[in-house]
Amino acid sequence: MKNYVLILSFLLLGFYSCNKEDDAFAPPITAENTFSCKIDGELFVPKDHGGFIPLYGYLIEILEDNSWIITLSNGKNTLYLFIKKINNTGNYEVFASDGDQDFLYNEKTGMEFTDNGNNIEYISLNNSENIEILSYTNGQKLILKFDKIVLGSTTNNASIILTDGKLNINKETLNKDQ
């Protein structure tokens, strides 16, 4: 009987000590080199740095006009943010994206999301809500947030809702400790 109690105890302890990805927590906006948002209510947090054109992690490209291309991935899904010509704090309206994920010729701020598990791409639409730039330093630091942005599928009528988004990036320290 003792053996059954011990085995049952270890099994229960094992179940309760497992870390589920769903149990991840959203980092505070004050934490440097972090991003989080909810996608249809589920938390999306990129994993630590995982390579170029990330298999997972953060990839930041800053263009000459201080436009930021930000790629965020958790290994399953990838979120692309493009913020055109950051020149002050305040609101930057999100417009329709063309779905090409490189943003090099885009004239307006946009977002894209790739659901790799279901092979579905979503793009920002015209009349989306704003991204609020809270703080920035040209070519180095960016802190932003957004409350709600709707992205539409490129293949069907489905959409996803991104809420509670927050990003704090410092290019000088990003991936230095990894």
Rank of each mutant, 00 (worst) to 15 (best):
K76E: 15
I62S: 11
N91I: 04
I69L: 08
G75N: 08
E61V: 03
I70D: 00
L63A: 14
D65K: 02
L59M: 11
S67T: 13
N87K: 11
W68M: 07
I83Q: 08
S67E: 14
I62N: 13
E64G: 12
T89I: 10
L63S: 14
K84V: 08
S67K: 11
L79I: 06
N91C: 06
I86V: 15
L79Q: 06
S73F: 03
S73C: 03
G75H: 10
I69V: 13
Y80R: 04
N91E: 15
L63K: 13
I70F: 04
L55R: 09
L72T: 03
I86Y: 13
L63E: 15
P54F: 00
S67M: 13
E61L: 05
D65M: 00
I62R: 12
K85F: 04
Y80C: 00
K85P: 00
N91V: 05
S73E: 04
K85G: 06
Y56R: 12
K76W: 12
N88H: 08
K84Y: 15
I86P: 12
G90S: 09
N91R: 12
G75Q: 08
L81N: 01
Y58N: 10
L59G: 08
I83C: 07
G75P: 01
N87Q: 11
N88E: 10
Y58T: 11
D65H: 00
F82N: 08
S67W: 12
L72I: 07
W68A: 02
Y58C: 07
L63G: 07
L79G: 06
N66M: 10
L79D: 01
L72F: 02
K76D: 15
F82W: 05
K84S: 11
T89M: 03
Y56P: 01
I60N: 06
K76A: 12
D65F: 00
T89F: 00
L55H: 08
L72Y: 00
N77P: 01
N87P: 05
I62D: 06
W68G: 06
W68K: 05
L63R: 14
E64D: 15
T71G: 01
S67C: 13
T78M: 07
E61T: 10
N87W: 12
G90F: 07
I69R: 11
S73Y: 03
L59H: 10
I60A: 06
N74Y: 03
L55Q: 11
I60P: 04
Y58L: 02
S73G: 13
I69N: 07
S67A: 13
Y56I: 04
